[in-house]
Design a protein around this nucleic acid. Structure first.
Length: 882
RNA sequence: AGGCACGUAGCUCAGUGGGAGAGCACCACCUUGACACGGUGGGGGUCGGCGGUUCAAUCCCGCCCGUGCCUACCA
């Protein structure tokens, strides 16, 4: 009987994946139309760097977004997943500069125009690669809408935002202390200059007073910066120095005269309590200098060498200068000592060069006016973080936000729409290239050579991609987006800035939910890094185990509030699940007749209704989990349903009817098997799109469309309590007989004879075949006779189950088994009795809890008594040999 | 220095105010017509430590220890 399965014995993922992905694209399954009347659901991809290649972080984040997008499509939403890539200004420029360096060239030799052309070439090549990799992962992005941050449309949005914010006074030009990367020769934002621990020395230096023989001692880790000192500061309430404040000191080496000043920022406990003040090269000193009106001396050139202000040290690098300054101080007897002093030093995020703080004129953005609405929107719940704890991180940053340096001295990026008049030197800021200075009317204008921080355009992504500043139907429909999924390390860089810009320009939050996904570490919990050599390449995993296996594994490990430790065994688990589904489907297909549609089967039996019900429960659990971004719970619910219920119980039970000779029952079971398998495929499709589609397309009687257009099955009739209890009893009795067999070492193939009491007569009558088949019972009797001398006895579902042992040698094992059972019962009983004998428990616990304990006590008492009796009789039979 | 997580079976992790679960690993038996990437059964945990709240704490609270991450100008 049954048609031959069209599914091969083994699932070969690769050809299946590319075949279906192409088919989905051709069918336009991922494209959202604005005319679609269904409710919208949208998400924008965190645009990967154009120079990038798919790593596990991408694989995770995009799998999770794809799960959500496919899930919402199946729920009937008009889903738009906006894809695209980021020009990643400094990162990309650094990469292309490295390419050039291999050819022995620098960008300066090429010139700006040729260099930018070169980056565009690079972009064309590697931008396509990351898109292909996302497609290989199965991402159901609306590729017809793909965007790039330097597309003309998005560039126009960037200019528009710059000009408007400038007009509102939120973008301004200022000379301020900034982070400067000497290698990249550009300013960096605080976020782009992370502090890294570095070895260092703390030097103690003597600064003599001009008007006396005395001197003051200061401590510094950067002795070379004394060349830029314009004061020495002490705490105003430090009585040691109070009488000296106002005196003049002679700056060592340069012999400049500098004042001794008082400022509360000085820590009296540190070193001597006096600190050199270098407003040009230290954030604290800069602030102090501003407060006290101290002059600023910049001693650095843009390339990190010392300039003419450093006198005899001009031309040296910072580290050369440090050595020379220390040596010269020593020669003059001004160096009092030094000791090791590890500290945190800012490094360039992209090239790891030590960042120099210096004062530079740049474009800045005022953040507080933008931050306030962004804070408010999360506080009042217009946007919610998942897990919630990340809101604290968001609040902390926005509450302490500082002006953002948005100009970069790079060539790759959005050119700043500001022109300086050669005549009056003032700035003209405009969306369209101006032909004359708006201040003096002079026509000689020079556009600012700088570009904008990459994150400036990223901040606009949720609306620039939908056509802003035009009022497009896409914006109307898909903004605000439903969710943003990203990693926590990007909350400041991106999430907060999108919130600010979205609220400012769209008057609404950019997304309702922010899902912060876990970070992936290696099996030992270490961060993956190329230098450590512990990187798992998702593409390799996909070709070794299949994309569905990778996706399932990642989803199943995405618990809230914890990083993912990923190793081979986790991936094997994912693959095993894919295989299990595949094999279950093969079984079903072997047993489904092609044309059952027209034939009248019998009514669905209990097993059919039960599995249908379990499917409804699993779907409900999965959807509740996805609503709460509890991806691991969604995966677990489906795993338990497919493996633990569908495969372990339903398929085994269904074999009775499928392989029986009752045509109506067979047809009914076939119909249910088909329906439940199809339901499982739909339910799993968001997580494992490829294998589910492959199986679905092989099902007989499908309507020819894609799985994603099926929609989730509507819940069937609920199972009555009586039916549920009946199934539970069956499962318990089967498990009980299996356990007895297992514990007594009855060979797996050997048939046993079992007896159920007449109280279980209905169960035996209805499910005798199942019990016989599932636990190798040859004969199932119903009788209330006392157990024979050679029977094992156990209780299940309130019944006493007897298993007749063909071989009396098992009786010794039975004695041991019963002793163990009795031990457990007595231990449990002890707990219950202690509880019930505690008057406070009886008085104060909820009545239903007390009742439950009383019932439990009665049940345990009863069972223990039966086991004791049985044990006694057995011991006599065995003759005390144990 | 501050903040935020985490600490549950050998490993990776779920979980709940009423004596704790999964996967992998382990042990035993089983190549039964979907599946050895499998089936059935089993062993294994004073739920980091100490206090507190409660009739009852693995769960709530406090402190401590350990681990990780983030923020911070200690020269």
């Amino acid at each position: 009987m049954g048609a031959r399965t069209p599914l091969p014995t083994r699932f070969d993922p690769r050809p299946v994946e590319s075949r279906w992905y192409t088919a989905w694209l051709e069918a336009g399954l991922f494209h959202a139309r604005v005319e679609d009347p269904r409710p919208p659901w949208s998400v924008v991809i965190p645009p990967p760097n154009v120079t990038g290649s798919l790593h596990l972080g991408h694989a995770l984040n995009n799998t999770l977004q794809d799960v959500l997008a496919r899930h919402r499509r199946l729920q009937g939403f008009n889903v738009c997943w906006m894809p695209g890539t980021d020009h990643a200004g400094i990162a990309t420029q650094v990469v292309v500069e490295r390419e050039l360096a291999k050819e022995g060239k620098t960008r300066h030799e090429l010139g700006r125009e040729a260099f930018v052309d070169r980056v565009w070439e690079w972009k064309a090549r590697s931008g396509a690669r990351i898109v292909e990799q996302l497609q290989a992962l199965g991402c159901s992005c609306d590729w017809e809408r793909e965007r790039f941050t330097m597309d003309p449309g998005l560039s126009r949005a960037v200019r528009e935002v710059f000009v408007r914010l400038h007009g509102e006074g939120l973008i301004y030009r200022d000379a301020f202390l900034v982070n400067w990367c000497p290698r990249c020769s550009t300013v960096l934002s605080d976020l782009e200059a992370p502090h890294r621990p570095s070895p260092g020395r703390l030097y103690t230096i003597r600064y003599p007073f001009v008007d006396g023989d005395d001197a003051i001692e200061i401590a510094t880790t950067r002795p070379e910066t004394l060349l830029g000192d314009t004061a020495v500061a002490v705490h105003p309430e430090d009585e040691r120095y109070a009488r000296h404040v106002g005196r003049t000191l002679r700056l060592p080496l340069l012999d400049r005269e500098i004042p001794l000043v008082a400022d509360a920022f000085v820590d009296r406990e540190f070193g001597s309590g006096a600190v050199k003040v270098t407003p040009g090269h230290d954030p604290n000193d800069f602030e102090c200098g501003r407060r006290l009106g101290l002059p600023i001396v910049n001693i650095l050139n843009p390339d990190g060498t010392l300039n003419e202000n450093a006198g005899p040290y001009a031309g040296l690098t910072v580290s050369e200068a440090r050595g020379r300054v220390v040596a010269d101080l020593e020669t003059r007897g001004l160096l009092l000592g030094s000791r090791e002093h590890p500290h945190e030093v800012p490094h360039c995020d992209r090239c790891d060069t030590v960042v120099e703080p210096l004062v530079s004129e740049q474009w800045f953005m005022r953040m507080e006016p933008l931050a306030r609405p962004a804070l408010e929107a999360v506080r009042d719940g217009r946007t919610t973080f998942h897990p919630r704890q990340w809101e604290k991180t968001y609040f902390h940053w926005l509450e302490n936000v500082r002006p953002w340096v948005i100009s970069r001295q790079l060539w790759w990026g959005h050119r700043i729409p500001a022109w300086r008049c050669t005549a009056c030197e003032r700035w003209t800021v405009a969306v369209e290239d101006p032909s004359a200075c708006i201040h003096c009317g002079e026509a000689e204008l020079e556009q600012d050579a700088d570009v904008l921080d990459t994150w400036f355009s990223s901040a606009l992504w949720p609306f620039s991609t939908f056509g802003w500043p035009d009022a497009t139907p896409e914006l109307e429909l898909f903004y605000p987006t439903s969710v943003l999924s990203t990693a926590h390390d990007i909350i400041f860089f991106w999430v907060a800035r999108m919130m600010m810009m979205g609220l400012h320009f769209m008057y609404d939050v950019p997304f309702r939910d922010v899902y912060i996904h876990p970070l992936i570490r290696d099996a030992e919990g270490k961060k993956m890094s190329k230098s450590r050599g512990n990187v798992i390449d998702p593409l390799e995993v996909m070709s070794a185990h299949g994309t569905d296996a990778l996706r399932y594994t990642l989803v199943s490990l995405s618990a809230q509030g914890r990083d993912i430790k990923l190793g081979e065994s986790q991936l094997e688990g994912g693959r095993a699940f894919v295989t299990k589904l595949w094999n279950a489907a093969r079984f079903a297909l072997m047993n489904l007749e092609a044309d059952t549609a027209g034939q009248a089967g019998g009514a669905a039996g209990l097993y059919d209704r039960w599995i249908r019900h379990r499917m409804d429960v699993a779907l409900a659990e999965t959807h509740a989990a996805l609503d709460a971004y509890r991806f691991n719970d969604a995966a677990a619910a489906l795993y338990r349903f497919v493996w633990g219920e569908l495969c372990d119980w339903y398929i085994e039970l269904a074999k009775l009817a499928l392989q029986g000779d009752e045509p109506r029952a067979r047809l009914a079971t076939q119909a249910q098997l088909r329906e439940v398998l199809a339901g499982a495929l739909v339910a799993l499709h968001p997580i494992m799109p490829f294998v589910t589609e492959e199986i679905f397309q092989a099902l007989p009687g499908r309507d020819g469309d894609f799985l994603m257009r099926q929609g989730y099955p509507k819940p069937g009739a609920p199972l009555s309590d009586a039916e549920a209890a009946e199934m539970d009893a069956l499962v318990e009795v089967v498990a009980c007989i299996r356990r007895v067999r297992g514990e007594l070492g009855v060979p797996a193939g050997a048939k046993v004879q079992a007896t159920l009491p007449t109280a279980a007569g209905t169960l035996a009558a209805r499910h005798g075949a199942a019990i016989r088949s599932l636990c190798q019972v040859g004969e199932l009797r119903v009788a209330d006779t006392a157990p024979s001398a050679t029977a094992a006895v156990a209780s299940a579902a309130g019944f006493s189950v007897q298993v007749e042992l063909a071989d009396p040698s098992f009786l010794r094992d039975e004695v041991r088994r019963l002793e163990k059972t009795l031990g457990r019962l007595e231990k449990d009983l002890g707990f219950v009795i202690r509880k019930l004998e505690n008057p406070k428990f009886v008085a104060r616990a909820k009545p239903e809890v007390v009742d439950a304990e009383r019932e439990k006590r009665a049940r345990l008492d009863d069972e223990a008594e039966r086991v004791r009796e049985r044990l006694e009789r057995l011991r006599r039979a065995v003759g005390g040999a144990s």
